[in-house]
């Protein structure tokens, strides 16, 4: 059971050139919304849920990205809560829920986001 739950399904999100440098976009995956970020200076990609857990707003893809001591983060446009893009934890408020993070892979200029098989089943 636990093996199947870690199986990752990679879906095609968009072209790498669709994503603004050092910013984010929102990717639709079934009924879900995933925020995808591109750190052009380091050529790094990150993906999290688009929903900010603070006020349950679909907004993180429109947030400002940046780093704190080299850890990549995003700030929600609503109240500037910041979240780590590495593990999704809230950096500005210890009591806040963490974000779900997703792995990202870029091949031939195409961006793929990895979702676990269950998520895939529910979503498709």
């Amino acid at each position: 059971m636990s093996i199947s739950s870690t199986t990752i399904h990679w879906f095609l999100a968009c072209k790498a050139s669709d994503v603004p440098h050092n910013g984010g976009v929102c990717v639709k995956y079934g009924e879900e919304q995933i925020a995808l970020f591109y750190f052009a200076r380091k050529d790094q990609w990150y993906a999290t849920q688009n929903l900010c857990p603070h006020r349950k707003q679909m907004a993180l893809s429109r947030g400002m990205t940046g780093t704190v001591k080299d850890e990549p983060k995003v700030a929600c446009p609503f109240h500037k809560k910041t979240f780590s893009l590495l593990d999704g934890r809230c950096l500005s408020d210890e009591g806040e829920c963490a974000l779900t993070v997703y792995p990202v892979r870029v091949t031939d200029g195409l961006v793929y986001i990895g979702v676990s098989e269950e998520t895939a089943m529910v979503a498709v």
């Binding site: 050092n22 200076r41 947030g63 940046g66 780093t67 983060k73 700030a75 500037k80 910041t82």
Partner: peptide, 19 residues
């Protein structure tokens, strides 16, 4: 912003310095 970061900054910037 990138030029400014290259010349005078470090890291990737954040929601304070970018605006």
């Amino acid at each position: 912003f990138d030029e400014v970061l290259d010349h005078y900054g470090q890291g990737d910037g954040c929601e304070i310095c970018k605006p």
